[in-house]
Simulated scan of single mutants.
Amino acid sequence: MAPKSKTAVTTIWKTADHHSPLSSFFSAVHPLSEGAIRCIDQNSHLLEVRKGKYLIKPSQEEPELFFILEGVVRGFIREEGKEITTWINEEHDVVGSIRSLGLKIPTKEYVQAIEHCSLVSIRYEIIEHLYENFPETNVVGRKLLEENYRGAEERAYICRIPSAEKKYKRFMDTNPGLINRVSLKYIASYLNMTNETLSRVRRRFPSSSAG
C-alpha cells in the first residue's frame, strides 16, 4: 500500500479519461500497469499557483515533483544577495529540486512560478513506492532522468559560450516558446549576463520583442 500523507485528500480527476494528467504523461513515456496508474491517480493532486509564489523552498522536509499543465516555472539559488536562475521550464515538463531527491538532505534551491501555473504534484515518497512495487515505472524514471541529464548538459554548454549574442541565439533556438513569455531579468540571470547586455543583444534579433 502506498504511504499516506497526513493531509492527503484523493483528487477526483475531471479529465476525459478520469485519470491524473501525470499518470497519462507517464503512460505516454512507457506503458504502465493498472496498479501503477491507480496509485498515481490516488496520490497526485491538482495545484493552482499564483505568479511569484514558491513551489519549493530550501529546507522543505517532504520533497515533491510537479508536472506543469499550464505556466512557466524557474529554479534559482541565492548567492551573495543575488538570485541566480538555474533553469526555466514550461508546459509538459516535470520539475522539482532534483539534486536532493533520494539523498534526504535539504535543497538549496527555490522553485518559483513565474506565470500563474496549473500543476499536478506528487510526493517523492510515492515515486519511490512506485519504483519498488511496479517495475515498469523504473523505465519511466530512467527515461525522464535521461531527459533531465540532456537538459543539464545543455545548461552547462550554454553557460560556457563566451559570446553573449551566441548565448542568446542558442537560448532562442532551444527554447522558442519562452522568448516572449519570460521576464528579461530571469533570462539574463540564466545566461549569466546583465540585463543591459541582454537588452542590447535582443535588439539584433527582430523576432524578440521586449519581455
Rank of each mutant, 00 (worst) to 15 (best):
R200M: 13
L130S: 00
P135Q: 09
V29S: 00
K143Y: 11
L65S: 02
E115T: 01
V120N: 04
L55I: 03
N43W: 04
K4W: 11
E147K: 09
Y54M: 13
Q42R: 12
K53P: 09
N192G: 06
K169M: 05
I179V: 01
Q112F: 08
G211D: 15
S97N: 10
E136W: 06
C159N: 12
N43M: 03
I187A: 01
V72F: 06
K167F: 02
I122L: 09
L22P: 03
M193G: 03
N43Y: 11
K104Y: 15
E48S: 10
P206F: 11
F66Y: 10
H30C: 06
Y157W: 13
N43F: 05
K6S: 07
E34Y: 03
P63Q: 11
E90M: 11
V9F: 12
F25A: 03
P176N: 02
T85K: 02
N148F: 15
S27L: 11
T107V: 05
W13C: 05
L130Q: 00
E153F: 06
K166F: 10
P63E: 10
V111S: 07
K169P: 02
S44C: 08
W13L: 10
I40A: 12
T11Q: 04
H116G: 12
F67G: 00
N133G: 09
D41P: 07
K4E: 10
G71L: 04
S33W: 05
R142P: 08
C117M: 04
S20G: 01
S5Y: 14
Q112K: 03
I12R: 14
K51W: 07
G35T: 07
P106E: 08
E90G: 10
S59Y: 14
T194Q: 07
C159R: 11
R155S: 09
N89D: 08
L184E: 11
N148L: 14
L65K: 07
S33L: 09
S207H: 14
E128D: 00
